[in-house]
Amino acid sequence: MRLKVSFRAPSDTGPLRPNKHAVQGFIYNMLKGTEYGARHDQPRFKFFTFSDFFKENSRWTFLVSSPDRDFIRALYSAIKEKDRLYIGTHELYLAELRKFNLPLKNRFQTGSPVVLYLDAEANEYFKLHAHRDLTFFLERLKENAEKKYNAFYDDDFILEGPIFDRMIPKVRKNGKLDVYVKVVKNGVPFPVIGSNWELLERDRIRPSERRFYRFIMDTGLGEKNSLGFGFLNPIRGGNSA
């Protein structure tokens, strides 16, 4: 399930790109007093993600997605009571708030960078441009997705074959494939490295795999989902699953 949040910003405001940790903090703050109020402190997968901000009809918008419908409903109920909202240092005015679902397709594109660790203990991120190991990337994506899915549904599902059959990365203007995102936490900046994708396609999603692919579409792909990474959008025109 998804939640669309659109804002009216002051006319003198340039591109709205709030720090991802501030957006995460905004979401957790909205959830205070709900059954999800302690989600931030729980040592477990958070099962939500959010997109980068984008401009739509002169409004700045971002999307939140989660396989937990009650999570989205709780967030919706909290935000709809507000006219003025604060994300980091930005004072914003709510223009639109809408819950919705999207049909599952077999083709996706990213709405925020996909992040994976090459070595989590060394805090080393996988860099698509530098490491150029698509096999590692696909295997780690699949392993991470299965682990989250099985934790959410208390299952032991294993996906047959690769998680995607066709992939087209989004190349930056400088020719690089990797995206460096500066995240600031408690005043301390740290980089998170990921990659954006124009196409992530599974040739055929079997009936037994539909729940799995809908799950990753809603919870996010890769790591650091609750920090706004790995957001997926189904591509219109793809085959229905």
Rank of each mutant, 00 (worst) to 15 (best):
G187K: 09
V181L: 12
R98P: 03
D68C: 08
K82P: 05
V184D: 06
I72F: 01
H129M: 13
H129I: 03
Q24G: 06
K148A: 11
A9Y: 04
V192M: 06
G25E: 04
F48T: 01
G237E: 11
D12N: 15
E209V: 02
G14I: 08
L232P: 02
L31F: 04
S58L: 06
P191H: 09
F53M: 08
I193M: 10
L128Y: 13
D83R: 06
E81G: 03
L92M: 09
K173M: 10
S195K: 01
Y149E: 07
F26I: 02
F126M: 09
Q109N: 14
K148T: 04
M30D: 04
R69Q: 11
G37P: 01
E160A: 12
T13M: 15
Y36K: 02
W197S: 02
S58K: 06
F47P: 00
I163C: 07
S6G: 01
I168K: 14
F53V: 11
P169W: 02
P15C: 05
L3I: 10
F54Y: 15
D68I: 09
Q109A: 15
R2N: 13
D178S: 11
F50G: 01
G88E: 07
P234K: 03
L159G: 05
G175P: 08
R140N: 13
K224M: 13
L94K: 07
K82Q: 14
V114D: 00
W197H: 03
V188Q: 12
R202Y: 08
I79T: 00
F137P: 01
G161I: 05
T219M: 08
M1G: 12
L199W: 08
V5F: 07
A78I: 05
F62W: 05
E201T: 00
Q24K: 14
L138K: 10
P103L: 14
R39G: 00
A95L: 10
A38K: 14
E160V: 05
E146A: 01
Y149D: 04
G194E: 02
F50L: 08
L63P: 03
E121R: 14
F212L: 07
S51W: 09
G230E: 03
G237A: 15
N186F: 09
H21T: 08
D156M: 04
L118F: 11
I72H: 05
F7M: 04
I87D: 01
F157A: 01
E146P: 00
E143W: 12
N106C: 10
K176Y: 15
F26Q: 02
R236E: 15
D203H: 15
K32S: 02
N239R: 15
D203V: 07
F212V: 02
E91A: 10
K127N: 12
W60I: 00
R172G: 12
R206H: 14
P162M: 07
G238V: 09
N233G: 03
D41Y: 14
E121G: 11
R166E: 15
R69Y: 12
K20A: 05
L134G: 03
R132V: 11
K46V: 06
H21C: 03
P169V: 03
F71E: 00
V114H: 00
S11R: 12
N101K: 12
E81I: 09
T13W: 11
L104I: 11
H129P: 07
N239T: 13
D203L: 13
L75I: 02
E56Q: 11
R206A: 15
T135I: 14
G33N: 10
P67V: 08
N225D: 08
L232H: 03
K4D: 04
V188C: 10
I87S: 06
